[in-house]
Design a protein around this nucleic acid. Structure first.
Lengths: 205, 205
DNA sequence: TAGCTATTTGACCAACTGGTCAAACTCACG
DNA sequence: CGTGAGTTTGACCAGTTGGTCAAATAGCTA
């Protein structure tokens, strides 16, 4: 594919269609389980045509992951050191749950990658993610030291938020198999609000 | 392979070696990402030899999943309706976390399967799992009605326990990338104890 | 509309993969 | 030690898969 030029109308449309299709297929079957043919069919294009826009299957996957990691960290970045601590944290939980509701495929793409040892994004985890987390943990520690939220292990607090919210996207089938007709997210929102209120409400020394 | 007879010494040894190797490979790469050759190498046997003991790659996977699902539900089965509610629940959380520590491969095998839509165990989820969960939810509701633990959505309470404990096995790489040297499970044990104590301690009406 | 660039695709390939099979080998036991 | 059952494997096969390529087609702009 020609480069160095601004993308044409057709390029924009087809790249977007391919990434959309790739997200469907990768998130449902994992990297190895997805085939280029499947993605091509889903995108309504021929296989050689996909490989005209992306040099390889891996390039499609990488493009998705790169775009994802950034979006995925946005809710944590938005944790505001000027806000009221408990309100900020509850808002963070809410945003994360909302992402699971709105972008379950992205969550599963990420889950697939991590469960299998993060072969393609380990570096981003131990650098970008760790840096951001360390930064926010410092804020949490300040809040705890000031008695504005209860004292708990700050890293595990963040892990718990990731785990509890992403569970509803990643384990969606299981949740629905158990719940039946009830919408999982409505109940989850209330439950998580209660949980973090009780865990974090400031308590007397 | 001959059947209808009691398994020979060699059969027992090799079947076990194959399942052990298969667990390694499937949990690390998913069903589709695993190859029979890989499992054979890991087990120290030839590929045709594997297929002498198991009729297909899928049969190995099925054997693992079938064995797993039962073990996986044991901690929940052990929730005792005669015990002290909060103690029982904290013990359940502890057992589940211990399983993540001791059997991370099993947890990841399960996670791989569920994230990809549970194609092979959906039925077991919506029958066996659901039945057990419904049963234990009734117990939780009794406890809540009697004011012996705080009132929360009982299904989401169970989801939260699964999610928080399995996270340490399934997202192990990510947790370690963020935590550095610290052992994840020690901190998790304390954190989860605190979390569920605060969430569930009976509160005045 | 001519001519250049961008796009599309049918045909193809080499590597890989799950699985087969007949022949060879090993073991338990009379 | 002989023998039949149990075990192992090299060679092989057919289907799938990621990726290539030259030729054909569509789009754009002078």
């Amino acid at each position: 594919m020609p480069q160095d030029r601004a993308p044409t109308r057709i390029q924009k449309k087809n790249r977007a269609a391919i990434l959309e299709a790739a997200l469907n297929v990768f998130s449902a079957h994992g990297f190895r389980g997805a085939t280029v043919d499947q993605i091509a069919a889903e995108a309504g294009l021929s296989k050689p045509n996909l490989l005209y826009y992306f040099p390889s299957k891996e390039a499609m996957h990488d493009a998705l992951l790169a775009e994802l990691l950034d979006t995925w960290l946005d809710p944590l970045r938005a944790l505001n050191d000027q806000g009221e601590p408990l309100t900020e944290l509850l808002a963070y939980v809410h945003r994360k749950l909302e992402m699971s509701r709105t972008y379950p495929r992205e969550s599963r793409l990420f889950a697939n990658e991590i469960v299998q040892g993060a072969p393609r994004i380990y570096q981003a985890l131990s650098e970008d993610l760790k840096a951001l987390v360390d930064d926010k943990v410092a804020l949490l520690e300040d809040w705890m030291a000031a008695g504005r939220i209860a004292r708990v292990h700050p890293y595990h607090l963040l892990f718990s938020i990731w785990s509890l919210t992403q569970h509803y996207a990643d384990f969606d089938v299981q949740v629905r198999a158990v719940l039946g007709n009830e919408d999982p997210f409505d109940g989850a929102d209330i439950f998580l609000d209660t949980l973090y209120r009780r865990l974090l409400s400031p308590r007397p020394e």
